[in-house]
């Protein structure tokens, strides 16, 4: 009983700790200190790749170029450009690679739809196999096989193997 209460208390403490930690922004500022523009830029920067470190977003990277690009993105946002305009600006210079989410176009069709095509193909094959199994017939049970089966049955019955 005491153990159970202790566990419950511990769980409660953990839950309390996480929910209390959530609203604090990672930079240590308070929530009110982040204005709408900062929030928008933060979100935009997490969708953009830092080209120097490649597997980091613009928001996470400390690279010099990432600093410059963040400055550029901020300047464009302040000039009234939309998120799409800002992305187009970067894509024109660095290519689609700067986008973490690749655009849907013929060259990326395989990337976007390939998994679904594979799933559909696998599902179709699975369905056909299961159906055949349920019907108890296989396409290999042709006349030739029936003849072979009859020969096998005769052999099992102790008759002479005529075909041999």
């Amino acid at each position: 009983m005491i153990v159970r209460a202790a566990i419950a208390a511990l769980l409660l403490a953990c839950a309390g700790a996480t929910s209390a930690a959530d609203p604090v922004p990672p930079s240590g500022e308070n929530a009110a200190g982040m204005n709408a523009l900062d929030m928008r830029l933060k979100r935009l920067e997490t969708e953009l790749r830092c080209l120097v470190c490649q597997n980091q977003t613009l928001a996470d990277s400390n690279a010099d170029l990432a600093d410059d690009l963040r400055r550029e993105v901020r300047a464009l946002a302040l000039a009234g450009k939309s998120d799409d305009d800002i992305k187009a600006y970067l894509v024109a210079r660095y290519g689609d690679f700067v986008l973490y989410k690749p655009p849907v176009k013929p060259i990326t069709w395989m990337l976007w739809f390939g998994p679904f095509a594979l799933l559909a193909g696998g599902g179709a094959i699975g369905w056909v196999v299961l159906r055949r199994r349920a019907l108890g017939t296989t396409p290999t049970a042709t006349n030739a096989d029936t003849a072979g089966e009859m020969r096998a049955r005769k052999l099992l019955n102790g008759e002479d193997d005529v075909a041999a």
Partner: peptide, 13 residues
Amino acid sequence: RDGRVGIDYGVYG
């Protein structure tokens, strides 16, 4: 000096 032209040229390395 500030790397603006570098950004226009897509310089990253």
